[in-house]
Amino acid sequence: MSIIQVANLKKSFGSLDVLKNVSFEVDKSEVIAVIGPSGSGKSTMLRSLVNLEQINGGSIRIQDQYLVKDGGYASQQQIKAITSGMGMVFQHFNLFPHLTVQGNLELAPRTVQKLTAGEVRRRSQELLGKVGLADKSDAYPARLSGGQKQRVAIARALMLNPAILLFDEPTSALDPELVGEVLRVMKQLAEEQMTMIVVTHEMGFAREVADRVLFMDNGEVVEAGTPEQIFDNPQQERTRTFLNRVVRV
C-alpha cells in the first residue's frame, strides 16, 4: 500500500526547470534514499511534499489525500491536515535558538495540538531518551554539538507523531565523527517501521538502511531500485557516472 504517490511533478524557478517529470511511490514503512548530484532537484522534490515549495504541475497524494491534483492544490485547511502527517529534518537543523531543547520539542504540540503540559512533557522526555539526550533537556541549542542538534531536531519532528519523516541531507553539515550518532537514530527509526525519505550523500547508509534508492539527475528520477540494483548493477549511464564519482561503498 503506497503512502505517498507522486506523479509527473513539475517545478520551475523562473525559466529554470528544476523538476521535469518526477514520479515515484513510497510504501508504508519503506525507507527511501534519494541520491544525485548537486542541483538535481532533490531538496525541491522533498520540500514540495510538505508544501515548502509550490509545484507547477503534477500530483502529490499523501495518505490517500491529494495535496495537489493535476497542478491544483487542495484548500489551505486540507493542506494543513495533509502536511501535519509529515515531519521534516533539515540539513541545518533549524532549531529555535531562543528555546531550550525541551522548549523546541514542546512548542508545536502545545501551540498546535493543545495537549496538556503533562502529556507533552512525558512525550518529550521519552523522545529525548530515545535519541540519547535525556540530560540535555534544559540546554539551549547554542550549547549543543551538531550531532546533538540534529538528534534534537529528529525528536522535535517525532513529537507530532508523523506517519512520514523527511530528511534533507541530515548529516551533511556535521563533522565526520558526529555523523554516526545521527545515522544510528535514523536506523533505529527505520527498524521501528517509520516511513522515511532521506536525501543523502551517505552511500553507506543508503545501501545499508534503504529499501529503495532513487537516483535523481537534472530534475528527473533517472533510476530507482533496491540498493543492490542501484549500487551493484546500475542500468543507466548517468547513474554509473555519478556513482563512479562518489566514494565507493
Partner: peptide, 29 residues
C-alpha cells in the same frame, strides 16, 4: 534565517503563531 519560518511551518504553526512564538523573540534579541 528562512529556516526558522520553514521549521515552524512544517511543525504546523500558523503564520501568526510562528511570528509570535518563533520570530518575534529572536527579533527582539
Amino acid at each position: 534565517d528562512k529556516g526558522q519560518h520553514e521549521a515552524a511551518q512544517v511543525l504546523g504553526l500558523s503564520r501568526w503563531q510562528a511570528t509570535v512564538k518563533v520570530i518575534m523573540p529572536q527579533m527582539f534579541r
